[in-house]
Design a protein around this nucleic acid. Structure first.
Length: 420
DNA sequence: TCTGGGGTCCTAGGACCC
DNA sequence: TCTGGGGTCCTAGGACCC
């Protein structure tokens, strides 16, 4: 059996943990640079504020009129609470996999809890609330896709109250019949529309359809989904937690950038982020892609440029990659462009353990230095030591106008308890 | 006054070569 | 008279997820 645990409106829920004054108010959290809405708490959702990823400025006045509390993304806080959440969830299964900042899969293998699945799921939910003060939904099912569906039911279907277990056909049927096809894991807006045109509206109808036919009309992925909805595992545990095939770090700027050296600094900090993720999964990169662009919303004509670079010897050394990227900036930069976004992608990866080195090309990686850097940063914070090319103080800013304190990671952010 | 997220994977199609 | 293949590499863009 598999379980999927995820936090309801993660970012909004995190904001409420250390600030009792907003617990009963509608809260909305914005993405980087306060661009879009990315999380809406249940109170706000009840008021009809449901749509994620609408640009904030288009609904700003409306939200203000409704008395909605606005927060910028406070990643330091969310990452720290996420860590605590994952530590707690991990205790309840032999194996776990962190799927995103607010979700994890648990894999039980042959393990069966003494108290039964329903009770086990309730215990997970209650323990997380007690220890981390985050509201989670727990879904359990025989395949990852059904665990996801159960999780959906736990939060969205009447009568489940945060916990759903699909362990027999009656429940499976009940859940899938009340679930729109678009809410199935892996079925997006577009596929859903095409399925609807074929008369398939609910998850149950998709489960009942012929797998081979779905493969013919769509892809093997949709075919696998049909099997998974019927309890036949197509996504093995190894698939669920397989290492990334590509790693990206990209970000938009708070203010447009026109200076070449600032663009370079930003790209080099993306190298730092991406390379450390790469080392975490014990990978080496063969091909990188670096891109810069202005905004399609700006009046200027659209400018986007990307270059790819192949390394003779695969590497995971931040300074080796940074040197290359630094050189590529000359190709990417253009005078007069108002840069809005840039990023670095590690697009062709190999497993460090399996890589067969070439006899004549010697790696210049300084593994010991990287190890040292990673362990210092793991302990004292992400940018405690970094390459000089990133600059000592970032010259580009991120707009975070409504930022809450970093309650758990900075002394000056420590919550205060006032006594009358 | 102006404002528009970030990440991963996949594929169609163009350029180039033989 | 008219026609015309197949592989590799690269890029842009789309789909999906959170």
């Amino acid at each position: 059996m598999y379980a999927l645990c995820d936090v309801s409106a993660m970012y909004a829920s995190c904001e409420k943990v250390f600030d009792p004054s907003i617990r009963k108010k509608p809260v909305v959290v914005l993405t980087n640079n306060d661009g879009c809405i990315c999380a809406t708490c249940p109170v706000a959702r009840k008021m009809g504020i449901g749509k994620s990823f609408v640009p904030y400025f288009t609904v700003k006045d409306e939200l203000a009129a409704m008395g909605v509390v606005i927060r910028s993304s406070n990643y330091e806080l969310y990452a720290d609470l996420s860590q605590r959440l994952m530590d707690t969830c991990a205790r309840f299964a032999p194996d776990h996999h962190v799927y995103s900042i607010d979700e994890c899969f648990l894999y039980f293998g042959s393990y069966i809890p003494d108290a039964g699945w329903q009770a086990h799921a309730k215990t997970i939910r209650r323990t997380v609330w007690k220890e981390v003060r985050l509201p989670i939904g727990v879904g359990i099912g025989p395949t990852p896709t059904l665990a996801k569906a159960a999780n959906h039911a736990s939060k969205r279907i009447e009568g489940f109250n945060g916990v759903a277990v699909i362990d027999n056909n009656a429940v499976r049927r009940r859940v899938l019949k009340q679930m729109a096809v678009v809410d199935i894991w892996g079925i997006g807006r577009r596929l859903a529309r095409r399925l609807n045109e074929m008369g398939i509206e609910t998850a149950w109808q998709l489960a009942e359809s012929k797998p081979a036919l779905m493969r013919k009309h769509f892809s093997v992925l949709v075919e696998s989904t049909v099997y998974e909805l019927n309890g036949i595992t197509k996504l093995s545990w190894d698939d669920v937690r397989s290492p990334k095939q590509q790693i990206y770090s990209t970000r938009s700027f708070g203010e447009r950038v026109t200076d070449k050296s600032i663009l370079r600094q930003a790209l080099l900090s993306h190298v730092t982020i991406a390379a450390s993720k790469l080392r975490r999964q014990q990978g080496l990169v063969k091909t990188i892609q670096v891109f810069v662009s202005n905004s399609p919303h700006d009046r200027d004509s659209f400018y986007r440029k990307s270059v790819t670079h192949q390394f003779l010897t695969p590497t995971s050394d931040t300074s080796v990659i940074a040197n290359t990227v630094s050189g590529l900036v000359e190709n990417l930069y253009r005078q007069g462009v108002h840069f809005y976004k840039c990023g670095v992608g590690l697009i062709e990866l190999v497993d460090a353990a399996q890589y067969q080195a070439d006899l004549f090309s010697l790696s210049t990686d300084n593994a010991l230095l990287m190890q040292c850097m990673d362990s210092i940063n793991a302990r004292y914070g992400r940018n405690t030591v970094h390459i000089a090319g990133q600059g000592t103080t970032p010259q580009y800013t991120m707009k975070r106008e409504f930022l809450s304190p970093q309650y758990t990671t900075r002394l000056e952010g420590l919550p205060r308890i006032l006594c009358d």
